[in-house]
């Protein structure tokens, strides 16, 4: 029953991921690979599309994964799943327990969760980077060095740094994605 599966997987993602769409990437990657819903390449393509289209990244990812597995109804189930926990939790907090988040024990727990989420985001970037540049993946240590991927990452990082430094403005992800697409056509 793929629809129920999609709904439950995304319900779990929506309920336990902190830090919005980016905080969801590490969990989503685990689930998508474990269920065999996508390959690592198609997962990265899906991320690129989700980041360069408008709207919440989490909703974009849910719709995309849902559609790839179960068509229209699949994307509906996945999106409903990812939205529902945030909606219900926020509704309870705003209507009943306004000061819940400010309670010292809750702040204490969040003080542990925040750095953990940041580490998961950085860790995911590191794992994906190792894979893109060195061809390293789980349990497979045959090096397949890809200088072009490293070059594209370095170029995009340098461009973003230059924009921040000289134009005092962070470039939008879309510009960076367009540049890297052009580099991809040139190099591969």
């Amino acid at each position: 029953m793929i629809f129920l599966k999609l709904f439950l997987v995304f319900l779990e993602l929506g309920a336990v991921s902190f830090g919005g769409g980016y905080g969801m990437i590490s969990l989503l990657r685990e689930q998508v690979l474990a269920h065999g819903w996508m390959t690592e390449e198609s997962f990265m393509n899906m991320l690129a599309v989700s980041e360069s289209t408008p709207g919440p990244i989490a909703v974009n990812m849910a719709t995309f994964v849902g559609s790839s597995q179960g068509g229209f109804f699949g994307s509906f189930c996945a999106t409903l799943g990812v939205v529902l926990p945030a909606f219900i939790i926020m509704l309870i907090i705003v209507s009943l327990i306004r000061n819940f988040i400010n309670l010292p024990p809750v702040q204490g727990a969040l003080g542990g969760i925040r750095p953990c989420v940041v580490a998961l985001i950085c860790g995911t970037a590191l794992i994906m980077g190792l894979r893109a540049v060195f061809g390293v993946s789980a349990g497979d240590f045959v090096l397949d060095f890809d200088l072009r991927a490293l070059g594209i990452i370095a170029f995009v990082a340098a461009f973003a740094f230059a924009c921040k430094r000289f134009a005092k403005k962070k470039p939008s992800p879309i510009i960076l994605i367009v540049i890297s697409a052009g580099l991809g056509i040139l190099l591969y």
Binding site: I25, E41, V118, A132, A157
Partner: peptide, 23 residues
Amino acid sequence: ARAFRGVQACVVYLIAAAGIKLL
């Protein structure tokens, strides 16, 4: 397909940049 191979590398940067900003 070639363009998206480039974009995959860019996605790594975008996630890393978000992580470092939050860090």
